[in-house]
Simulated scan of single mutants.
Amino acid sequence: MNQTPILIPATLWDDDSPGVISTWLFEDGDAVTQDAVVAEVMNEKVSFEIMAPATGTLSIAVPAEAEVALGQRIGAVG
């Protein structure tokens, strides 16, 4: 099965400091549609929405409250 990775965009914030996944809005294994907001990431008290890159089944690779870096894969949709 093809999976499209869910990445923290490399240009989401201005510096190399880590962010934190504040919440996943869907559970692992849920069906999601392309462009649906699937997670929220915080950095320096600013919240960013992460969108599904495709329609399919969500596979979460990094749990809520975990630190993430710019460009990091946090899940996939397949």
Rank of each mutant, 00 (worst) to 15 (best):
S59P: 06
Q34P: 11
A31N: 13
M1W: 13
D28T: 07
P5D: 12
S47G: 15
I8N: 05
E49K: 13
M1P: 12
D30C: 07
D15L: 03
G19N: 06
T4C: 02
I8D: 01
D15W: 05
G75L: 06
P9A: 05
A10I: 07
V46L: 04
A31F: 14
L25C: 12
T23Q: 11
T55W: 01
E27Y: 06
G71R: 00
W13P: 01
T33W: 12
L25T: 11
V77G: 12
R73L: 08
L7V: 05
A69K: 14
V46N: 10
V38T: 01
T55L: 05
T55K: 02
M51Y: 09
V32R: 10
M42N: 15
P18D: 05
E49T: 13
E67M: 06
A54M: 04
V41H: 04
I6F: 00
A66P: 00
P63C: 09
V68H: 00
V32D: 06
D14L: 09
L12H: 03
E44C: 09
G78Y: 03
N2P: 12
A76Y: 06
T33C: 14
W24K: 10
M42T: 15
G56I: 02
N2Y: 12
A52K: 02
A76G: 09
P5C: 03
P5L: 10
A64V: 02
V37F: 13
Q3S: 15
A52R: 07
P53K: 02
A61W: 07
S22T: 12
D35R: 13
A39I: 01
V68G: 06
I74V: 15
A54H: 08
E40H: 11
P5M: 11
D28G: 05
V46Y: 07
F48L: 08
D28H: 15
S17V: 13
F26M: 09
E65F: 12
V41N: 04
L58C: 03
L12Y: 08
Q34V: 14
V41K: 00
L7M: 10
F26S: 14
S22K: 14
T55D: 06
E67A: 07
N43I: 01
I21W: 01
F48A: 08
P5W: 08
L70A: 05
A39C: 11
I8G: 05
A36I: 13
D35W: 03
